[in-house]
């Protein structure tokens, strides 16, 4: 396949997907920043948002955007969501083979040939699953702290705070890794433009990175 030059573009991410991604990303950055500010008492961060009480208000409403954004997207694009869930929860032999070689991203693991992948490679699938679990956990622990803080028992509130904190730490690390691979790593930084800008990616790259998916697209042409 690498011999033959494939011309053309692939629409990888639809407008609504990209809008949701942007919204979720911005909310996540604000939430992460203010959250870090609360946990370690960094006055500078709270002051950016107008003092601790206002920072907390920003954190809570960013949390609403963080929750409502994906829910709206899922309701409006249930088919896209379903295909996404199907893709990220189906692991084939190729996926396990990909995981064994780490997709060629890790310098000291020698690779001959990266196994062909679907729309998302095995690493992205795992990220997708973890992000969904993380979002659910962080949302269901977040709202009680705000809306039920005077109704629930103190021990339950303490659990919410701890689960919220550790989920947030893991999510921040995951998202940093995601950012590095999708925007900085030379092998895959072309993905950045497709999600953040126009949604298109070169067909040639897709053919190389997501061979199975591209074959499917060619079939439907």
């Amino acid at each position: 396949m690498s011999e033959e030059v494939i011309k053309g573009k692939v629409l990888k991410h639809d407008t609504q997907t990209r809008t949701m991604h942007w919204l979720h990303l911005l909310a996540f950055i604000i939430l992460g920043l203010t959250g870090i500010g609360f946990y370690w008492d960094i006055a500078g961060i709270a002051n950016i948002f107008g003092g601790p009480a206002n920072a907390s208000l920003v954190h809570r409403w960013a949390g609403v955007v963080f929750t409502v954004g994906p829910i709206l997207y899922i309701l409006l694009n249930f088919d896209r969501f379903s295909r996404f869930v199907d893709t990220i929860t189906s692991f084939s032999r190729d996926d396990f083979a990909w995981l064994k070689t780490m997709g060629g991203y890790v310098p000291f693991i020698k690779i001959e040939e990266v196994p062909p992948q679907e729309k998302y490679n095995a690493g992205q699938k795992i990220l997708g699953i973890l992000i969904i679990i993380g979002c659910i956990l962080i949302i269901i622990t977040g709202f009680p702290m705000w809306l039920w803080c005077d109704v629930v028992s103190s021990a339950f509130l303490a659990i919410c705070y701890n689960v919220h904190f550790w989920t947030a730490i893991i999510m921040i690390l995951l998202v940093l890794g995601h950012f590095f691979l999708a925007a900085i790593h030379p092998k895959s930084r072309v993905e950045f433009a497709s999600m953040m800008l126009d949604g298109y990616i070169d067909a040639e790259i897709t053919a190389e990175h997501n061979a199975k998916w591209f074959a499917e697209l060619q079939k439907t042409e």
Binding site: G8, K9, V10, L11, D79, V85, D86, T89, A203, E221
Partner: peptide, 23 residues
């Protein structure tokens, strides 16, 4: 130059998985 786009709609399996995740 050709533009490749995804097929809209979903299969039964995809629908079940999507609703399953929501549930």
């Amino acid at each position: 130059m050709s533009i490749f786009t995804e097929k809209v709609g979903m299969t039964r399996r995809q629908f079940l998985k999507g609703s399953g995740m929501l549930a």
